[in-house]
């Protein structure tokens, strides 16, 4: 089954997120208070290794498992949507101590109340979709 490998990738991702403690509200508080290097170390390591890897992929024109050249589609140029949207998400990230991936990892980790946050995140996405025509992008 084609989807099986994505489930497997998700399982590994969930374990990494939990064992790195990046799913913890306390770790996010440490980060936003600049009192620990932990989260910066995680994100910094991922970005540095990621940037090196992406550069190598481009240089050697690597292909994916279907033989299609690998490329990350650049996001459209703008400032306001990224700054405003990012700020709104940042408010929620600090309040809940969780970004979208960890919401689900936490739910699996034995914190069923995260389901409420997930339901309201879906509602929030619906509200964005319904009013996106009226927002500056």
């Amino acid at each position: 089954m084609k989807l099986l490998k994505f489930i497997a990738a998700g399982i590994i991702f969930g374990i990494i997120m939990a064992k790195s403690e990046a799913i913890s509200w306390y770790r996010i508080q440490e980060m936003f208070r600049f009192q620990s290097f932990h989260m910066y170390g995680i994100i910094g390591t991922a970005v540095i290794l990621g940037a090196i890897g992406v550069a190598l992929i481009k240089k050697f024109k690597l292909r994916d498992i279907d033989g299609v050249p690998i490329e990350i589609h650049p996001k459209e140029k703008s400032v306001i949507r990224y700054l405003a949207g990012g700020t709104i998400f940042g408010l929620g990230w600090a309040l809940t101590g969780s970004c979208p991936g960890p919401l689900f990892v936490n739910f699996g980790y034995g914190y069923p109340v995260f389901l409420l946050v997930i339901i309201f995140a879906v509602i929030g996405t619906y509200i964005y979709g319904a009013m996106s025509d009226k927002l500056p992008h």
Binding site: K75, R81, Y82, A84, G85, G86, T87, I88, F89, G90, L91, G92, W93, L95, T96, S98, C99, P100, G101, L103, V113, L116, V117, I118, I119, F120, A121, V122, I123, G124, T125, Y126, I127, Y128, G129, S132, L135
Partner: peptide
């Protein structure tokens, strides 16, 4: 929890990513 969820859902789509 509800407001936190709304902010995450709205903000990530407006910013086109998390």
């Amino acid at each position: 929890l509800a407001f936190g969820g709304l902010l995450i859902g709205f903000g990530t789509r407006y910013a086109a990513g998390c």
